[in-house]
Every structure is written in structure tokens, then in C-alpha cells.
């Protein structure tokens, strides 16, 4: 329902930011997310940044589930 794509902020001027989708650069609306910094990973939807991505959280989720799978593996 809402296609959101990860990208990295590479330039900010006023309410417009330039983001890099992994090689493709595009200007997007940066008004909705306060104190953006260059280098932040963000989610872009319909040409606007709607949230920052917390990379640490991403890693922890993956670790949590890897351990769950290990623990259950023992039970099979």
C-alpha cells in the first residue's frame, strides 16, 4: 500500500535533499523528517522522506531471530 524505498542522504539544501538509491540520485522532499544529516539512511515514499532507518536495530532483529532459530533447531 505504500512503497517505501531505502536511500542514503548525500546532500541537503533547505527542505530538499538529494538521496542516493544505490547509484541513482534524486531530489526529494525532506520537510517531514527533522534534523536530517548527510549519510543518514532514510525511507522515501512518493518522492518524500518519511523516516530514518536505524541500522543498529536492523542488525539486532536479524541476530534475535538467528538465535531463535538456533534454539528451536535443538528441539526438532
Amino acid at each position: 500500500m505504500c512503497l517505501g524505498v531505502p536511500a542514503r542522504v548525500i546532500k541537503i539544501n533547505g527542505d530538499i535533499a538529494t538521496v542516493d538509491y544505490g547509484g541513482i540520485m534524486k531530489d526529494v522532499d525532506a520537510f517531514l523528517v527533522p534534523n536530517l544529516k548527510v549519510g543518514d539512511y532514510v525511507i522515501v515514499h512518493a518522492g518524500a522522506i518519511i523516516a530514518k532507518i536505524n541500522e543498529k536495530e536492523a542488525m539486532e532483529m536479524m541476530k534475535a531471530w538467528s538465535s531463535i532459530m538456533e534454539e528451536l533447531k535443538g528441539e526438532i
Binding site: 512503497l3 524505498v5 536511500a7 538509491y21 544505490g22 547509484g23 541513482i24 534524486k26 522515501v44
Partner: peptide, 12 residues
């Protein structure tokens, strides 16, 4: 190529 893949994901 990654760039083409990313571009497609950006536009759905």
C-alpha cells in the same frame, strides 16, 4: 546490475 535493480525498486 545493482543500479538497474535499485532503480526498478525505486519506481516499483
Amino acid at each position: 546490475r545493482d543500479e538497474v535493480r535499485m532503480y526498478c525498486e525505486m519506481l516499483g
